[in-house]
């Protein structure tokens, strides 16, 4: 059998065998496998994508929560600061108010004292006037001959008045 001349019978059988194999595998074999592998690839890609997305979302959430926490902390600090300021302000105001009030009271007291003083002075003056009048009356009533006796009398009268 020559090696280089194709045998007709074998050509026929090869055509038949390869034809059948080709028909069956190209129609029912390989496309099924390739399609499935490609579908799986698409599925894996999709899963990866969604995993990535979920991861991104998760980091986003974490960041956001951290941000919220920070903000809350800041707010807390601010509120505390504000409260402190308010307290100081209130105290200062109260102090001021108290000062004013106290001043007012003092001045009022001062005025009252002044008034009292004036009244007292007036009373004293009146009393002195009265006393002077009395003394003058008494002096006039007595015989005011002697100078020394007069002085003595005046002193006596003053002493009396002082005692009174």
């Amino acid at each position: 059998m020559s090696l280089l001349t194709p045998d007709l019978g074998l050509l026929f059988w090869m055509l038949f065998a390869f034809g059948v194999v080709f028909f069956v595998l190209a129609k029912f074999g390989f496309p099924v496998i390739i399609k499935m592998v490609e579908e799986r690839k698409a599925f894996i890609d999709m899963s990866l994508e969604s995993a990535k997305e979920a991861n991104a979302r998760l980091t986003c959430i974490v960041e956001e929560s951290e941000k919220i926490l920070k903000e809350a902390h800041e707010k807390e600090l601010q509120i505390l600061k504000e409260a402190d300021e308010m307290r100081l302000k209130v105290i200062a105001e109260a102090k001021q108010q108290a000062g004013v009030e106290a001043g007012k009271l003092i001045s009022e007291a001062r005025i009252a004292i002044q008034k009292e003083k004036e009244t007292a002075l007036r009373d004293v003056r009146n009393e002195i006037a009265m006393l002077s009048l009395g003394i003058a009356e008494k002096v006039l009533r007595r015989n005011l001959s002697d100078q020394s006796v007069q002085r003595e009398l005046v002193e006596q009268l003053i002493n009396e008045a002082r005692i009174n």
Binding site: D7, G9, L10, W13, M14, A17, G29
Partner: peptide
């Protein structure tokens, strides 16, 4: 003559085709 005998090669071909399928 027209020879379509299932020779050794043809047989092997058919056999391996069946196994491959």
């Amino acid at each position: 003559t027209w020879d379509f005998s299932l020779t050794k090669n043809a047989c092997s071909l058919l056999l391996s085709s069946i196994i491959l399928i």
